[in-house]
Simulated scan of single mutants.
Amino acid sequence: MAQLRILLLTALAPVAWGTTYLITTELLPSGHPLLAALLRALPAGLLALLIGRALPRGSWLWRSAILGALNIGAFFPLLFVAAERLPGGVAAAVAGVQPVIIIGIGWVVLRERTRMPATAAAAAGAFGVALVVVGPTAQLDMTGVLAALGGIAATASGVVLTKRWGRPVGVGPIAYAGWQLTAGGLLLLPLTLMLEPMPARIDLGAGAGYVWLGTVGGLVAYVLWFRGIQQLPVAAPGLLALLSPVVATVLGVVVAGESFSVTQSAGIAIVLVALVSGQAFAHQRDGVPAGSPASRAGEPAGMR
């Protein structure tokens, strides 16, 4: 029951992220991915630092900088580039390759084995993404596709390192999320000032969009996400990320009037099936439930 609760709370993060695509295209000024990334990261990070009342020390100074660069500084702007250039369902569906990347990096870095059914589900999700992205009638913006893939690779690496390094004793999830959001925001600040002009106008809708992305899609989502990463098997967060295409696709069709070819629809369906089936196996390794003493015996101390 406790594991299910952690799973459901962690799942709220990709659900919130699925709204990013619609908000970006419908509310935010176009052509300002760095500004959107900065406003999503830095205010939320500073607020989390105030609430959490803890600053990184020692090795966590450089660890926070690396995690912030991967999970926030690289991922956020690439995410907004993809959201501007691709239909919401397509941009989010590219996340279907993330489980494959996480499983591969997790095997190399963590030596954590994933059961074959979970690996097969991850591969099926990647195949579904291929149908969405390179189908015969897709005609997608390749800059958007590459941005989505780059962002996914960055955050996949961040997921594995987050699980590898764990969280310092006595530091809560809010402060921990604040370290990464602030580090990523500070990385984005000079880049935004140097490379991107301010939009001519930020209306009420754009302001509301930035607030939503910074609070629900930023602070709240990342507190739940980083907390869940450290308590779930390495394959589980990547498979949970497939919830993002569900939300983005539904919002795209219902609100934005998007449509998909038969091939793309089949690809999205495969991604969703991979999500549902993969979670059942991601929580077991070699017949031992994840989180049990036996399953955790071989984990590095920093992961406990």
Rank of each mutant, 00 (worst) to 15 (best):
residue 223 V to A: 02
residue 187 L to G: 01
residue 146 L to F: 08
residue 165 W to P: 00
residue 143 T to A: 06
residue 204 L to Y: 06
residue 135 G to A: 04
residue 213 L to D: 03
residue 231 Q to N: 09
residue 197 P to Q: 00
residue 146 L to H: 09
residue 221 A to R: 00
residue 175 A to L: 05
residue 224 L to E: 00
residue 231 Q to E: 09
residue 192 T to S: 02
residue 137 T to Q: 09
residue 205 G to D: 03
residue 214 G to A: 07
residue 136 P to D: 11
residue 191 L to I: 10
residue 229 I to D: 00
residue 145 V to Y: 00
residue 127 F to W: 01
residue 218 G to F: 02
residue 165 W to R: 00
residue 214 G to D: 04
residue 215 T to S: 15
residue 174 I to G: 03
residue 230 Q to W: 09
residue 157 S to M: 11
residue 192 T to K: 00
residue 177 A to E: 05
residue 139 Q to T: 11
residue 231 Q to G: 05
residue 192 T to Q: 03
residue 172 G to C: 10
residue 204 L to E: 07
residue 213 L to F: 11
residue 154 A to C: 15
residue 173 P to W: 02
residue 171 V to A: 01
residue 148 A to Q: 05
residue 229 I to C: 01
residue 210 Y to R: 03
residue 139 Q to V: 13
residue 181 L to D: 02
residue 153 A to I: 15
residue 202 I to S: 10
residue 194 M to T: 14
residue 226 F to M: 12
residue 140 L to Y: 13
residue 220 V to G: 09
residue 159 V to I: 15
residue 230 Q to E: 10
residue 135 G to V: 01
residue 134 V to W: 15
residue 145 V to D: 01
residue 169 V to W: 15
residue 206 A to T: 06
residue 158 G to L: 11
residue 127 F to H: 00
residue 134 V to P: 09
residue 218 G to P: 04
residue 219 L to I: 15
residue 193 L to S: 06
residue 177 A to G: 02
residue 146 L to I: 15
residue 158 G to S: 15
residue 206 A to K: 06
residue 194 M to I: 15
residue 170 G to P: 14
residue 187 L to H: 01
residue 154 A to G: 13
residue 207 G to E: 08
residue 213 L to S: 05
residue 213 L to I: 11
residue 209 G to S: 08
residue 169 V to F: 15
residue 171 V to E: 10
residue 221 A to S: 04
residue 155 T to S: 12
residue 130 A to F: 13
residue 159 V to F: 06
residue 176 Y to H: 13
residue 146 L to P: 12
residue 224 L to S: 00
residue 197 P to R: 01
